[in-house]
Simulated assay, not measured.
Amino acid sequence: MSESPGVAGLLAPALTMTGRCVRLSRRDIDAVITSMMLPVMLMLVFVYFFGGALNTGTEYVNYVAPGILVLCAAFGSSGTAVRVSEDMKGGIIDRFRSLDVGGTSILAGHVVASTVRNLFSTALVLGVGVLIGFRPSASAAGWLAAGGILMVFLVALSWLSAAVGLLAKTPEAAAGFTFIMMFLPYPSSAFVPTETMPGWLHGFADHQPVTPLIESLRGLLHAQPVGSAPWLALAWCGGILTVAVGVSGVLFRVRTR
């Protein structure tokens, strides 16, 4: 009778796949620089080009920085779709399966590597924000809560991106997911209060997953009341993660049948 591989047997391949994905990321210097510099450039554009014309009731850099952090996470996580699609197209998955490496380990490696990349990007964006005037007043608990919510969002979005990479037939098609993820923070409270938007857009902006996340980060980092926003953000992230993990498992079995 065969024995169950146990936790260690499942964890070891995932760690190996994570190491592989991190090494591949280090070699793709262009993608790393783009994922780090684009959010920084957007922050500078919004603060210095548009900030003087926008009235948000506070220094604009303090208002927009949490939104840029989410935009950074969305853009960085979406790159996972391209990397998964490249693996599927390149034939490396067949070699991994011949070594008895399961789909969960392969995808988890991509997700963990994506989260690590995004943590570096987030730290860079946060540092630049502080240099240009972002002044968070959060307590240690506030920082931990904000970091935890953002981490859950990173993981959920990376798994969703992995599912898209399995669904896309080519890496070029998977790259289209980047545009969608980059667009989603715009019709939200990331750059302007949602109540300034037209009525039809206001409703969407208030009830999409990014808005409660941004409101949670903004409130926690500035030590302001957050109400139910963190729970809404976690509920959205939990739903996205559950669906993405389930769908990616089905898609992986179908694509490697």
Rank of each mutant, 00 (worst) to 15 (best):
A162G: 03
C237T: 06
G19E: 07
Y63G: 01
F179G: 07
G133Q: 08
F120G: 08
G76I: 06
R27F: 07
G76A: 04
G67K: 02
M181P: 13
S228K: 12
Q208C: 00
V101R: 12
I92T: 15
Y60C: 07
D206M: 12
V32K: 01
I29P: 00
R23H: 03
A65Q: 15
L221N: 01
V152R: 01
D87V: 09
A146R: 00
V247N: 05
A138M: 06
L54G: 04
G142V: 02
G52L: 09
V101M: 13
V192M: 09
M17V: 08
A190N: 04
A108K: 01
P136M: 06
G249A: 15
Q224K: 12
G199M: 01
L10P: 00
D28G: 07
V40E: 08
A233D: 08
T80P: 05
F153D: 03
P5C: 03
S2Y: 14
L42R: 02
V47T: 15
S25I: 01
A163K: 04
V254K: 15
S2I: 12
M43A: 07
A140C: 09
L131P: 07
L167I: 12
A65K: 07
V152E: 01
F49M: 15
L157V: 14
F49T: 11
G142D: 02
T170S: 15
G79Y: 09
M1P: 13
L15H: 07
R255S: 11
S139Q: 10
L38I: 11
L44E: 11
M182R: 09
A140G: 12
E59A: 13
R257I: 13
W200K: 01
I149L: 11
L232E: 14
P171C: 07
E86F: 08
G91P: 06
L11S: 10
R27K: 12
A31M: 08
G6L: 01
G79H: 04
F50T: 02
T34A: 15
F134R: 01
A173H: 12
I214E: 02
G67W: 04
I29T: 11
V84Y: 03
W236T: 09
R257M: 13
S85N: 11
Q224V: 04
L167C: 08
G199W: 08
W200I: 06
G219N: 06
G238E: 03
L217F: 03
T34W: 14
S4L: 07
F183W: 12
R83D: 14
L213I: 05
A138D: 06
G219H: 12
T80N: 06
A173C: 10
V245Y: 00
V112P: 00
L251H: 06
P193D: 14
G19A: 13
L131V: 14
M41G: 11
T170I: 10
G76V: 00
G51V: 02
I180V: 15
G127F: 02
G91V: 10
D94C: 02
G52C: 05
M181T: 14
S158T: 04
T56M: 09
F50N: 05
D206E: 14
L167S: 11
M43Q: 14
